[in-house]
């Protein structure tokens, strides 16, 4: 069987912007505590974040939420620029970050148009007993290196090992396999799976919503189509990065009263 190509489908119509995924990720991946100073210095580390966009003004105001995480691009702009191969694409469609190889040039962070790479400006610290919660499956990073979403590669590796041990194939949507954010997402806005497996939920969603299975072209989208229009798109498609994350558009109604303006 072909190697898996891990990917995610994110339904913006379901995302409520609640940030549960953020905590799930922090808990799973030993992300250092973002102290208050880190926010004022603009250096918090969140492998997944919810971007909130405003639309209009009171009283006709709306807000949009887009969860953004590493897109694990097939043509990742961060990969060619790393001088030491600390980041590269592996045969499972993951954009890998090797912490112990990274020397911290931050070139990749500049290359990434999604702003999902985070730099450890400070030595991560867990006060006293809080260290007990650290996940032993994940490397604790030191200062001076980049880190980013790994699609919880430790879970993928563990599931793979287990399935090899038991001679079974990896189940689609296995909770042991899903990244922490997917398990934590209360509205099921995030779905994780293997794009190379045509039976997987993500493949089906991609086929249905993006059409022709490939990277869709929505440049002609004029914003006033029927609901049964395909909702899939890639984030910042114009950069040609071919991400492994498919977004589904938010559906919104234009009521008559709004149209009057």
């Amino acid at each position: 069987m072909a190697n898996p190509s891990w990917g995610m489908v994110i339904d913006n119509d379901k995302c409520t912007g609640c940030n549960a995924c953020v905590i799930a990720c922090q808990s799973e991946n030993n992300i250092p505590i973002n102290e208050e100073d880190h926010f004022t210095q603009r250096r918090p580390i969140q492998w997944i974040r919810i971007e909130r966009y405003w639309e209009g003004e009171f009283p006709n105001v709306k807000a949009r939420f887009i969860p953004v995480l590493c897109q694990h691009c097939a043509d990742a702009p961060c990969e060619p620029v790393c001088p030491v191969y600390a980041t590269y694409h592996n045969d499972q469609g993951l954009n890998v970050q090797v912490y112990n190889r990274c020397i911290g040039t931050r070139f990749c962070a500049n290359g990434c148009p999604y702003q999902v790479r985070h730099f450890n400006f400070w030595e991560p610290e867990w006060p006293d007993s809080l260290e007990n919660q650290l996940n032993p499956d994940v490397t604790v990073r030191t200062r001076g290196i980049m880190e980013k979403c790994t699609f919880c590669v430790q879970r993928i590796q563990r599931t793979k090992r287990e399935s090899e041990k038991n001679n079974t194939s990896i189940k689609d949507g296995d909770r042991q396999l899903n990244p922490a954010c997917v398990n934590g997402c209360a509205t099921d806005a995030l779905v994780f799976g293997d794009f190379n497996n045509p039976e997987s939920k993500v493949s089906k969603m991609k086929k249905k919503e993006l059409g022709h299975g490939g990277h869709g072209d929505h440049s002609d989208h004029d914003g006033h189509k029927e609901h049964d229009e395909k909702r899939g798109y890639h984030l910042l498609e114009e950069y040609g990065t071919h991400p492994s994350v498919v977004y589904l558009k938010k559906v919104d109604y234009e009521s008559k009263t709004v149209e009057k303006h």
Binding site: Y53, G223, H227, R231, D252, Y253, E259
Partner: peptide
Amino acid sequence: NDVSEFPTDYEQHIIKITR
């Protein structure tokens, strides 16, 4: 991050349906 104006989703990845 600090932006002088309120950020809007410039890509407008929203499907609008007229009701």
